[in-house]
Design a protein around this nucleic acid. Structure first.
Lengths: 191, 191
DNA sequence: TGTACATCAGTGAACGCGCGTTCACTGATGTAC
DNA sequence: TGTACATCAGTGAACGCGCGTTCACTGATGTAC
């Protein structure tokens, strides 16, 4: 079988997208190469035609997770007036929907401590992705100066990631909800 | 060899303490049974004389992590006047020392997303531990009413855990420091 | 008092299993002559 | 136009390895008679 010129790229993208979901659902050490390939309708053997190592997939899949979840939120904010965008961002990030679906949500909320333990190369790339996210979102953060907006992004982003991470541990749905609601109320009140 | 009556309990405790450290350093899936036993000066085979399964060790080690790190912070607050304790707590939790030493720090900051993915039994136990921690610390949280102090604990705790988790990902020490400092300034200012 | 046996924390080899990675192969299509 | 060969995404079996768990054994001490 010979394929169209873009065939290989599309297959690779499909593998990366499946890995991005599985990683956030099952953790950085969760899905094996075989399971990702199977989810993509392929068999293990073909993996190394697309990636040099599992680490290469990991890094690409994390990047994909950032861009997917970022795009999703970003597009939801398009209809919101600029000065209210950060509030809508807070509501979306701290929603029960986000909390209940880690596999399509923020990679930091789903993987932060595992990212911190990743190999230096992977970690450096993730650091870059977080900085990109910061640069992209500062513009509609609250604050009078650029420095203030940048600080507020740092605070709001890590506070939200923490709240979602903690909420996801709790087994009682009412407790989960409360952690999210308390953080939302706090952020909307203090900025 | 026959041992004193408390010998077995002491050995078990030693294994749990070593696991508690290794877990926070390497993740819930990090250290194997053999490595924990070796760190305790024992060999693999003896493990099941102390634990029914690795999950039992996991649950006990996480509980140990909570009590160790809780005790450490709690004792540091004894000399601080009651109304300033929450501020000192914030400074300690968001210190570079805590950020740089996950293995002796807060289990939530070190393991939150992995805890969320643990088996239901383990997760339930962790939920209980988080609630215990909340009950123990509300008393010196800021706030006029008990409800307010309880909400403030929820916000402050998850915000701090998020900041430390995010900071630990970043490779540039200056960036790490900034995330911690920004969160500290925010919390001390707004409560 | 002396001997035979029970106890039990700890040993170390072995088990089946899933992992990341390698490799000889397939088979449909493009290219050379 | 027809034949021989090259290409290359994908296959599936095999590799060595570390994992959690099991098990027959050890050996110092306590107990029974």
């Amino acid at each position: 079988m010979r394929y169209e010129p873009e065939h290989k790229t599309r297959t690779r993208d499909r593998i990366v997208r499946n890995a991005a979901r599985k990683l956030r659902a099952e953790g950085l050490r969760g899905p094996g190469v075989a399971s990702v390939m199977k989810a993509s309708g392929l068999t293990v053997g073909g993996f190394y035609k697309h990636f040099r190592s599992k680490d290469e997939l990991l890094a690409d899949a994390i990047a994909e997770g950032f861009s997917e979840s970022g795009e999703k939120i970003y597009s939801s904010l398009q209809n919101v007036p600029r000065e209210h965008r950060w509030k809508e961002l807070v509501r979306l990030y701290l929603s029960p929907e986000h909390c209940d679906h880690p596999d399509s949500g923020c990679p930091v909320a789903a993987l932060a401590p595992e990212m911190a333990r990743a190999k230096l190369g992977v970690r450096k790339r993730i650091s870059g992705l977080i900085k990109d996210r910061a640069e992209r979102w500062v513009e509609f953060m609250p604050g009078r100066t650029a420095t203030e907006r940048q600080q507020n992004f740092s605070v709001i982003f890590s506070a939200m990631a923490g709240a979602v991470s903690v909420a996801r541990i709790l087994t009682d749905p009412a407790d989960r909800q409360k952690v999210l609601a308390d953080m939302q109320a706090h952020l909307l009140r203090t900025f």
